[in-house]
Design a protein around this nucleic acid. Structure first.
Length: 422
RNA sequence: GGAGGCGUCGCCUAGUCCGGUCUAUGGCGCCCGCCUGCUAAGCGGGUUGAGGGUCAAACCUCUCGCGGGUUCAAAUCCCGCCGCCUCCGCCA
């Protein structure tokens, strides 16, 4: 949720932000009028309620002959208070739900426009050159006994898979490498629940435009998370954090589930776009002022991880219209996927400023004793599947074997070359 | 899943049976001040959060796990839910 004061004090800034994302600004006018209605309703209710309270106080001391008249009066007033109260809460609900429709105000620096309007910030390394016909990860995964797609489909349906043998080892190695890196950088390691209550989903902004992508548990008020950003953002909900403890840096491992509705026919081959995968995610609580610098640090940690995997990748500044509800700015790291001849998203880091914390009621108590908003940021450290794809395709050899990047070798028991099982 | 107990302003706690003066008691911690060469002790004051209102204030409203109900009036009575604890059952 954006700062309600923005609507009242700088509505034009919000209108401009909507336009930058390619959204209509009529919601701004609705929010302004909902705010006015709400404040009028509050004033009316509070006026009646104050009257009711003061009359109520007179009743115990009232002389018996006055009592009946007083009771009559207060009884009538009670009905009006009740009506005013429900009018007030109705106005409050409308105001809140209108505000909730408004996504975070994109950073001035974020490019305007949609998915294709990103700006390339930098490109690292060069595309691998092969003196043979390179295989894609599906073929390599099969040759190496690492990925079993047929049985994944048999057991769970399309966009499911088993990681087998060296594939399973690769996941564990990547997870450990990511977790070690995070811990060394001062993150607290976490294993987070993959099922959450509506509050957590709503609070992180995933029940808005992304709702179609979210699995809901039948007959229960629980959702499967698409990222551990969700449980981590809700982790400190309803809390006031001591600002001197900031930044709070968490690195969580969890499974992630996505319906991938609306992407039928897209990336159907292999394990690039799947309904379930595991991920190590960085999540930070910090001050709004520090969040911009922290965002660059998260990006640096993502790059460090990709560097260790010796991948060719680029960093893009995602355009406003493609930011998602909560983000103020987002950088994606896209690795070169040889079989596709293009860069594809492997990791992503977002600065959500105080958008999520406002919804989830997480605040900070600062050195001067004041209480105010704090910011959240998230960043993928390792999304497992896609790094495996990039790894296999980038480091493949003519015979189908795959070189293991130096940094990953210790996590595979010193293995430097993955060979097809004999 | 069954039975019982509990949930009060950072922590502990009084109040709940018997509704109104609860504007929620006291202690700890914390903050400010006084005092004392320093420190400690002592003394005095402050200390939930949100919203409305205002130039700022004053002031007002809400907040005793959450939601509803009864009532002129609810921490207190009634109903539902959630969480925690104990025991039993089941289970990885």
């Amino acid at each position: 949720m954006i700062d309600p004061r923005l609507i009242r004090e700088e509505p034009d800034r919000v209108r401009a932000a909507q336009a930058k994302r390619g959204l209509s600004d009529e919601v701004v006018d609705r929010a302004i009028s909902a705010d006015e209605t709400r404040r009028a309703a509050i004033a009316e209710y509070e006026r009646l309620r104050a009257e009711q309270k003061s009359l109520g106080k007179q009743i115990p001391q009232a002389a018996p002959e006055e009592k009946a008249a007083l009771l009559e009066q207060t009884k009538e007033l009670a009905a009006r208070v009740k009506a005013a109260e429900s009018a007030q809460s109705e106005a409050e609900d409308l105001w809140r739900s209108t505000l909730m429709e408004i996504p975070n105000v994109a950073a001035d620096e974020a490019p305007a426009g949609g998915e294709d309007d990103y700006r390339v910030i930098e490109t690292i390394g060069t595309a691998p050159q092969f003196d043979f016909e390179p295989r894609d990860h599906v073929e390599l995964g099969q040759m190496l006994g690492a990925i079993d797609l047929e049985r994944g489909a048999k057991v769970s349906g399309s966009r499911f898979y088993f990681l087998t043998g060296i594939g399973a080892q690769l996941e564990l190695a990547l997870v450990m490498m990511a977790m070690d890196q995070a811990r060394n950088a001062g993150f607290t390691q976490m294993i987070a629940p993959a099922l959450v209550k509506p509050r957590a989903m709503e609070g992180t902004g995933f029940l808005g435009q992304a709702a179609d992508d979210v699995y809901k548990i039948e007959d229960q008020d629980l959702y499967l998370v698409g990222t551990s950003e969700v449980p981590l953002a809700a982790y400190h909900s309803d809390e006031i954090l001591d600002a001197s403890s900031l930044p709070l840096r968490y690195a969580a491992f969890s499974s992630c589930f996505r319906k991938e509705a609306g992407s039928h026919g897209k990336d159907t081959r292999g394990i690039f776009r799947v309904h379930w995968f595991d991920k190590v995610e960085m999540f930070v609580y910090t001050t709004v002022e520090e969040s911009y610098a922290e965002h660059l640090r998260l990006l640096a940690w993502e790059k460090e991880f990709l560097d260790k995997l010796e991948l060719h990748y680029r960093v893009i500044d995602v355009a406003a219209g493609d930011l998602g509800t909560s983000a103020q700015r987002k950088y994606d790291c896209e690795a070169w996927i040889a079989s596709q001849g293009r860069f594809r998203e492997l990791t992503s880091t977002s600065n959500c400023t105080d958008f999520q914390t406002r919804r989830l009621d997480t605040r900070g108590r600062f050195a001067d004793g004041s209480i105010g908003p704090v910011a959240t940021l998230n960043g993928t450290l390792c999304s497992i599947n896609r790094p495996i794809i990039a790894l296999l395709e980038t480091h493949q050899q003519a015979d189908g074997s795959v070189k293991v990047p130096k940094a990953l070798q210790p996590y595979l028991g010193g293995l430097d070359l993955i060979k097809p099982p004999t």
